[in-house]
């Protein structure tokens, strides 16, 4: 457990350092370009490519993306990510990624005034401010307001998952 925490902290520190100078250097790049330009989002970028969402998230938008770091993906149960990246699970991967996207550019000042937001996937995420932290479901926002050409990125420390639908219906159309 300690090693997991250490790893997460190390990732967070590295992430913070890498974005310390982000400022408006990201304003002329799309969400995908900004993510691709940061090594802490390599898993997210790979997932976006596998899901075929590059064009969508490079489009006009605007979008608000709650972007999990690589460390966040590592917190998923073993084998989960590998399964999601398989072609036969593309629909499920698309649903999960869309669950991290909200239509419109919602800066953190507005986010903290909300208690929920409808995602592009269709379901809502819960938003709460607790003990000085902004929570998206059970994920903590570790960096907010990274501006991009087509929206804004808020970085989260945990992958958030939509509720599974009943029956044979797939989890996220």
């Amino acid at each position: 457990m300690k090693s997991v925490i250490s790893f997460a902290l190390a990732g967070l520190v590295a992430f913070s350092a890498s974005f310390a100078n982000a400022g408006c250097g990201t304003c002329d790049k799309s969400i995908v370009e900004v993510a691709a330009g940061n090594k802490d989002f390599s898993t997210l970028v790979a997932a976006v490519k596998a899901a075929g969402l590059v064009d969508t998230l490079s489009g006009k938008g605007p979008f608000t993306v709650f972007a999990p770091t690589d460390a966040a993906f590592k917190k998923l149960p073993k084998g989960t990510l590998e399964e999601l990246l398989k072609p036969e699970n593309k629909d499920k991967l698309v649903a999960i990624l869309k669950y991290h996207v909200v239509a419109g550019k919602v800066m953190s000042k507005k986010v903290v005034e909300l208690d929920a937001a409808k995602t592009v996937q269709g379901q809502k995420v819960k938003i709460a401010v607790k003990d000085g932290s902004v929570m998206i479901n059970k994920a903590k926002v570790v960096k907010a307001d990274i501006p991009t050409l087509n929206g804004v990125i808020h970085v989260i420390d945990t992958v958030i998952l939509p509720k599974a639908t009943k029956g044979k219906k797939k989890a996220a159309e």
Partner: peptide, 8 residues
């Protein structure tokens, strides 16, 4: 604004 708990 200061963030504590709840909507600031």
């Amino acid at each position: 604004k200061r963030l504590t708990s709840g909507t600031p």
